[in-house]
Structure formats: structure tokens, C-alpha cells
């Protein structure tokens, strides 16, 4: 069991990196990768929110939305799965707000480091994407926890790598039209290629 979870964790960090293989969270990835410090701050905020919201959404899906999930309340035939999107996004938005309030109250240092990124994260597609993937792949609770956390770490790695490249790039000389978005996409492609080298690694056969 433990080996299986470890393998899933490694897979979600490197092989199926949520950003480089599934393209989730590109907007904030491109907008906030100008310097390494900001990138690290945003990356940790994403890990934090992902590891909270993915299990939360799992619980909601399992006990409220799934077909037959309401059996405990006496409605075994009710299927509310069409409400998935709206309840997931509401959970995420609410969680982000709560985390922000709690952090401001009890961990002001952490808040001043991550605070400005939290509102951005509510609309980061990697958060909602992770919750939707977890439903589609039928993960159980412990798998969801590992998957959420691992995806967050993968996202952090990718954005920090990108920020490091971008800082060096200010010395480079590009064709005029390519500078900016175009070259960023090509570099992301190259980073994604290097991550593909991990493909095929399996801890458990």
C-alpha cells in the first residue's frame, strides 16, 4: 500500500506533471515567473491549497454528490454528480478565502509571503483540474491526498525552473516578434521535454 502511494506521488511530481504534461495552471505560470522569489511563493501557496482542497472535494464528492452517495441520508438512488463543477469551484473559492483569513490571523509572516498569491489561486486551473482528475481516475482518499500534494510539488518545480531560465534570458537576444510570449512557450516546451525523460519510471511493477 505504501509503495503504491509512493509510486503515485513520484508519478504526479515528475512523470505526469500537472503543468508540463496536462497544461494546467498555465496562466499564473506565465504571469508570475519573472523572478524566482515570487515563483517560490506562488508555488508553495499552490501546494498548500491543492493539498487542502483535493481531499475536501473528495469528501464532498464521496458523501454528497456521487451516485448513491446520499444513501446515508436515506436517498440511495439520488445522483447529484452534475453539480460537481459548481460545488468544487465553490469549495475552492471558499477554502482559499478561509485559508487567507486564518493565515492573516495566526501566521502573519506566512501571510505576508503568500498572501498576495492566494486570491490568484482560486482561478488557477490546476486546483480545479486536480479535483476533476481525482474523480475521473477514481482515487481513494489516501491516493487523493498524495496526488494533491504531489501535483503541487510538481507545479512548484516547474515554475521555479521557468523563473530561473527567465532570469538568465534577460541577457539573450531574440528576433523581435519572438520575445515575450513566444519564447516563453518554446522554453516551456523544452522543460517539458526534459521532464518526459522520467516517463516509464515505475517503483512498483
Amino acid at each position: 500500500m505504501f509503495e503504491h502511494l509512493l509510486s503515485l506521488g513520484i508519478e504526479s511530481i515528475f512523470i505526469n506533471n500537472i503543468l508540463l504534461a496536462y497544461f494546467l495552471g498555465m496562466c499564473s505560470f506565465l504571469a508570475c515567473s519573472k523572478n524566482i522569489k515570487t515563483a517560490i511563493g506562488l508555488g508553495f501557496a499552490v501546494i498548500f491549497v491543492l493539498s487542502i482542497t483535493a481531499p475536501m472535494n473528495w469528501l464532498i464528492n464521496e458523501f454528497l454528490l456521487k451516485e448513491g452517495a446520499l444513501a446515508w441520508a436515506g436517498f440511495p438512488t439520488v445522483d447529484l454528480s452534475f453539480l460537481q463543477f459548481i460545488s468544487f469551484i465553490a469549495t475552492i473559492a471558499a477554502m482559499v478565502q478561509i485559508v487567507e483569513l486564518v493565515m492573516e490571523q495566526f501566521a502573519p509572516a506566512l501571510y505576508s509571503a503568500l498572501g498576495i498569491f492566494l486570491p490568484l489561486i482560486a482561478v488557477n486551473c490546476s486546483i480545479l483540474g486536480a479535483s476533476l482528475f481525482m474523480v475521473e481516475r477514481n482515487y481513494n482518499f489516501s491516493e487523493t491526498v498524495v496526488f494533491g500534494f504531489g501535483s503541487g510539488i510538481g507545479w512548484l518545480l516547474a515554475i521555479v525552473a521557468m523563473a530561473a531560465v527567465q532570469q538568465k534570458m534577460s541577457y539573450a537576444n531574440f528576433p523581435k516578434g519572438l520575445a515575450g510570449f513566444g519564447v516563453n512557450m518554446i522554453i516551456t516546451g523544452l522543460i517539458s521535454m526534459t521532464f518526459m525523460a522520467f516517463a516509464g519510471i515505475k517503483l512498483v511493477g
Binding site: F23, F181, I186, G189
Partner: peptide
């Protein structure tokens, strides 16, 4: 995935 990034770039 990398193909997508490079084509759009």
C-alpha cells in the same frame, strides 16, 4: 505535450 508548447510559440 512539448509539441503543443512549441507550435503555439
Amino acid at each position: 505535450a512539448p509539441g503543443a508548447f512549441i507550435v503555439i510559440g
